Structure formats: C-alpha cells, structure tokens
Computed example of a mutant assay.
Amino acid sequence: MSLTHNKARLKWACRRGMLELDVLFMPFVDEAWDQLSDQQKQVFERLLECDDPELFAWFMGHEECKDEQLNAMVQLILNRVKV
C-alpha cells in the first residue's frame, strides 16, 4: 500500500533505528511533503525502503547513492537541512 495518501503511515515509516535518520526524515515530512510532486513522493517512499546503514552512509557523505532518483532525493533532504 502506498504511503503517499496516508501521512500518519508515512510518518511511522520515517521512524528509523537511527536518531540521525529520524532527525532528517521527520521534519522533512512535516515541512516539505505537501510541496513534493507525485513522482518525488514515490521516490521518497522508495528511499524509505532502503536499509538504515545504506541511508546513513548516503546522508553522512560516506558513500554516494548510485540510483539517480534516490540520490536526488537525498540531496534535496540534505539541502533543506542546511537552509
């Protein structure tokens, strides 16, 4: 089931096992979700399906995500944090 139309389920899916990821995902959903295009929402949902160690490596800059769409979403989230 897609999380796109159920923000409560989406926020639940954003709760990760790592605090570093929680502090990125939760504010992003609260502040930016409604402005995302449908395609961006789908990419974000795909991002949430990734494993925490992978996500951590991408967001901390230890590795670059090879998937162009996922990498663009990672960069979008990181850029929002820097503002």
Rank of each mutant, 00 (worst) to 15 (best):
K82G: 14
E49K: 06
A8G: 07
M60A: 08
S2F: 12
D67G: 01
S2P: 15
G61E: 04
D30H: 06
R15L: 09
V81H: 13
H5G: 14
R15F: 09
M18F: 14
L70V: 11
H62K: 11
A32G: 00
L76C: 07
E49M: 07
Q42R: 12
K66R: 10
D30I: 09
L70Q: 10
V29S: 00
V74F: 01
K7S: 08
L36Y: 05
N79M: 13
R16Q: 11
W12L: 10
A57E: 02
M1C: 11
S37R: 08
V29F: 09
D52Q: 10
L24P: 03
F44K: 01
L36T: 03
G61W: 02
L47T: 05
G17S: 06
E63R: 13
N6R: 06
R80C: 10
D34S: 06
F25K: 00
W58D: 12
E45Q: 11
K11M: 14
Q40N: 10
L10P: 08
W12K: 14
L10Q: 07
C65M: 07
R46W: 09
L10S: 06
L76G: 02
N79T: 13
W12C: 01
S37D: 12
P53S: 09
A57H: 02
E20S: 04
L19G: 01
R16F: 11
T4I: 15
E20W: 01
D38A: 09
Q69P: 07
F28Y: 05
